[in-house]
Design a protein around this nucleic acid. Structure first.
Lengths: 209, 209
DNA sequence: TGATTAATTAAACGTTTGTTTAACTATAAT
DNA sequence: ATTATAGTTAAACAAACGTTTAATTAATCA
């Protein structure tokens, strides 16, 4: 290996700053000059490391998707009762969402858009998410007499939305009732989501989880 | 009244096209020239009618917020049992979300952003939403021994997210399992959300709704 | 030490951006 | 018919955009 070695520190700072700015201002409203200034890096370094602005967005989505699928998958493959498995899955998911909050917000903001290059990423991730949550809840769906009543695509979306709700609405709600949001721990929040979803699913499927 | 009268037809077309493009591409990724072409209108008409691009976004949020608060408020003031009131509230909300799907997507995409001008709008709306849903569920919270266990800010966010989940994930999920999403009627979808949330809340508050 | 190359820089590229201007059209009221 | 004005237009504005280039720095290996 010849040449300078900075262990890609600048690249990391660009990614960090990009996630922060994209989450707070939106991808389209953030200029590369503003980003380079925030990262304390020369403008040209962004295209040097990432190739283009859109590739930088892809990288952000990739980090989030890959990281979350790993978390979700590891919870899926564990042993145990369904109720505690589901509860652990929700807790792990919400913990990941908190540690990657800005990643989550960028992802959610990009969900509705139909850029072909980005859509591929989202579809691939969405498919795996539905499979994971579908596999997790398979016992319920199989035991139930209303098996096909709720497509996995639907209750996966519902659960994902529930788990993300705190982070999506946080920027708004912290202005509505400052403090009240911060007081509630993520553990308690995850318990609430878990309780609502578990008993909700029970009632819909008329089955005990 | 002197001068031409076109009953603001151009203004309506601009707003329609703006909602459509902002929802599919994002506010920041949509240029005014592209918008004027989509609306079949001269570029200058946009600033003539709306003043600025950002004012156009504000108008979109205003239409959505005002319309939804009216729907939500009318459900709140009606008489009846809590369980059916809640169910009707959820049905009306989801119906409104469907008829204003692109408005909803624009709003969700803008939720995390911290533009001061827009933040005012969102905070005002968020406050009224929390009050509305809080008032709807007040009987439960009062009867329960765990009264302060869930801040209204939290379960309002959860319910909003649940109701919006189908529309937020639709652009992704229709690529995951085409058809399966469209098959499920909004009535059935609202019933599912209603059942999950009602029984979920019951279990958390250990109270019968 | 000298060759090699990853990292960094300032400057410029051509587009596209949101906005404004001034002229023009067409309708409604006097 | 004349005037006033809402609506519409093409053209231009400076500023910002994403991207590229060529030159320079500095660390690594032979």
């Amino acid at each position: 290996m010849h040449g300078k070695q900075t262990s890609k520190e600048s690249k990391k700072r660009i990614l960090q700053s990009a996630v922060k700015l994209f989450a707070r201002q939106g991808y389209g409203n953030t200029g590369l000059r503003e980003l380079s200034k925030e990262a304390g890096v020369n403008l040209a370094m962004i295209n040097y490391f990432f190739g283009s602005k859109k590739a930088l967005l892809k990288e952000i989505l990739d980090v989030f998707f890959a990281g979350y699928l790993q978390v979700a998958g590891s919870e899926l493959s564990s042993e145990g009762e369904l109720s505690v498995k589901l509860r652990k899955f929700i807790h792990s998911s919400i913990n990941f969402f908190e540690t990657h909050c800005d990643y989550l917000l960028v992802t959610i903001s990009e969900l509705p858009h139909d850029d072909p290059e980005i859509t591929e990423y989202k579809a691939k991730w969405g498919k795996q998410m539905v499979e994971t949550i579908g596999a997790l809840l398979e016992p319920v769906a199989v035991d139930s007499t209303m098996k096909k009543s709720i497509p996995p695509v639907i209750f996966s979306s519902i659960l994902m939305s529930m788990m993300a709700s705190r982070f999506l609405f946080n920027p708004v709600m912290k202005q509505v009732q400052p403090g009240e949001l911060a007081e509630l721990s993520n553990e308690r929040y995850a318990d609430i989501i878990s309780a609502i979803f578990s008993h909700g699913i029970e009632s819909v499927y008329r089955t005990k989880i």
